[in-house]
C-alpha cells in the first residue's frame, strides 16, 4: 500500500516535469512578449535590454532549469503585464475558481449520481424518460451557450440572479470566500450550473448504464431471493458496485471542471484563474501561463492519485494484503 502510494507519487513527479517541459517549449511559439511590453517607440537596444532582464536571451534549457528551480520553491516569476509575482496573483485568484469548481463539482456529483440511480430504478417511468431526454441537451450544448441562455433567462428576463462577478466576498485568513454572503452565494448559482451541467449529465448517464448493468447481476438476483428490501438492494448492493467505474470518470471530470472554468469564467466575468489565463494569453504573459498550466496539471495528477486510492477503499479485491485463501 505504502509502496503503491510512493510509486504513484514518483510517477506523478515525472508527469509534472514532462508537462512543464511541453508547456514551456510551447510558449516560445505563442509570440514575443517583448512586442507587447514595449510601445511603438522602441529601439533595438530597448528590446535587447528587456530580453536580458527577462532572461529570454539565455538558451532554452537554462530558462527551463530556472523556471523549474523557482517553481519548486513556489516562485513562478513575475508577471510581464502586472509586474507582480505570479504566485501572489494566482493566490488572489485561486479561491474564486476553486469555490466555483467545488460548487459545480458538488452539483455534478450529487445530482448526477442521484438522477442516474433514479433513472435506472424507474427506467420505464415517465419522469426517468423525460430526464434522459433532457440530459441530451446537457451533453450536446456547448458550455458558453448554456451560460448565455441561463443569463438571458434568469438575469435578463426574470432578474433573479446576477449575471457576472462574484458578488460580495469576505476574507477568511487570506482566502476570499463568497460562501458567507448572500450575494456571493447567489452569484455562484448560474456559473456553478453552467460549469457543472455537462459533467452532471455525463455522470448521470454513466451511473444509469452502470446501474442497469449491475441490477442484472446474479448477486442482485440472489439479494432479491433472500428477501432484502428494494432500498437495501438498490443502494447497499447495486450502487456501491456501480461506483468503481463512476469514480474513474468523475475524477477526470473534476479535473476538467477546473480546466473548463476558463470558458465559464469568461462568460460570467468570474475573477478566477481561468480569466487570468485568458488575459495572459492575449498579452503573452509567459510566467502566468506556465504557472497556470503547472497548477492544472498538479490538480489532475492529484485527482488521479485520489481516484486510485478510492478504488482501494471501495473494492476489496484490489487490497492484496496476504489474506487470500
Amino acid at each position: 500500500m505504502l509502496a503503491f502510494v510512493l510509486r504513484r507519487v514518483f510517477q506523478s513527479a515525472i508527469v509534472l516535469l514532462v508537462v512543464g517541459l511541453v508547456a514551456f517549449s510551447m510558449f516560445r511559439f505563442v509570440g514575443d512578449p517583448v512586442d507587447n511590453m514595449l510601445g511603438q517607440e522602441r529601439t533595438q537596444a530597448d528590446i535587447e535590454r528587456l530580453r536580458a532582464d527577462l532572461g529570454l536571451d539565455q538558451p532554452f534549457p537554462v530558462q527551463y532549469y530556472k523556471f523549474l528551480r523557482g517553481a519548486v520553491q513556489g516562485n513562478f516569476g513575475v508577471s510581464y503585464r502586472q509586474g507582480r509575482p505570479v504566485a501572489t496573483i494566482i493566490k488572489e485568484r485561486a479561491p474564486a475558481t476553486l469555490e466555483l469548481a467545488a460548487v459545480s463539482g458538488a452539483f455534478a456529483i450529487l445530482l448526477g449520481i442521484g438522477l442516474g440511480v433514479f433513472t435506472a430504478i424507474r427506467r420505464r417511468g415517465i419522469a426517468a424518460n423525460v430526464i434522459m431526454t433532457l440530459s441530451l441537451i446537457g451533453v450536446s450544448l456547448p458550455t458558453f451557450l448554456i451560460g448565455i441562455l441561463l443569463i438571458y433567462v434568469f438575469s435578463v428576463e426574470l432578474d433573479l440572479l446576477p449575471s457576472f462577478g462574484r458578488g460580495d466576498t469576505v476574507m477568511v485568513g487570506g482566502w476570499s470566500t463568497g460562501f458567507l454572503t448572500q450575494s456571493g452565494l447567489l452569484a455562484l448559482i448560474l456559473p456553478g450550473i453552467t460549469l457543472g451541467l455537462y459533467q452532471m449529465t455525463l455522470i448521470m448517464r454513466l451511473v444509469r448504464s452502470e446501474m442497469l448493468e449491475v441490477l442484472r447481476a446474479d448477486y442482485i438476483r440472489f439479494a432479491r431471493a433472500r428477501g432484502l428490501r428494494d432500498r437495501a438492494i438498490n443502494f447497499r448492493h447495486a450502487m456501491k458496485n456501480t461506483l468503481v467505474p463512476v469514480i474513474t470518470v468523475t475524477g477526470l471530470q473534476l479535473g476538467s471542471i477546473i480546466a473548463f472554468a476558463i470558458i465559464t469564467e469568461t462568460v460570467f466575468q468570474w475573477p478566477g484563474v481561468g480569466l487570468l489565463f485568458i488575459n495572459a494569453v492575449q498579452f503573452v504573459d509567459i510566467p502566468v501561463m506556465a504557472a497556470y498550466l503547472m497548477l492544472i496539471s498538479v490538480m489532475f495528477v492529484a485527482i488521479n492519485l485520489v481516484v486510485d486510492l478510492l478504488y482501494f477503499a471501495i473494492d476489496p479485491r484490489l487490497r492484496v494484503d496476504g489474506r487470500t485463501g
Binding site: 446474479d218 448477486y219 438476483r221 440472489f222 439479494a223 431471493a225 433472500r226 448492493h237 456501491k240 476489496p316
Partner: peptide, 17 residues
Amino acid sequence: IGMIFQDPLTSLNPLLP
C-alpha cells in the same frame, strides 16, 4: 423459501464481507 443459484462466483456481492 430460500434459494441457491448456480454460480457461487457471481451470486455473492463482491464488495461486502
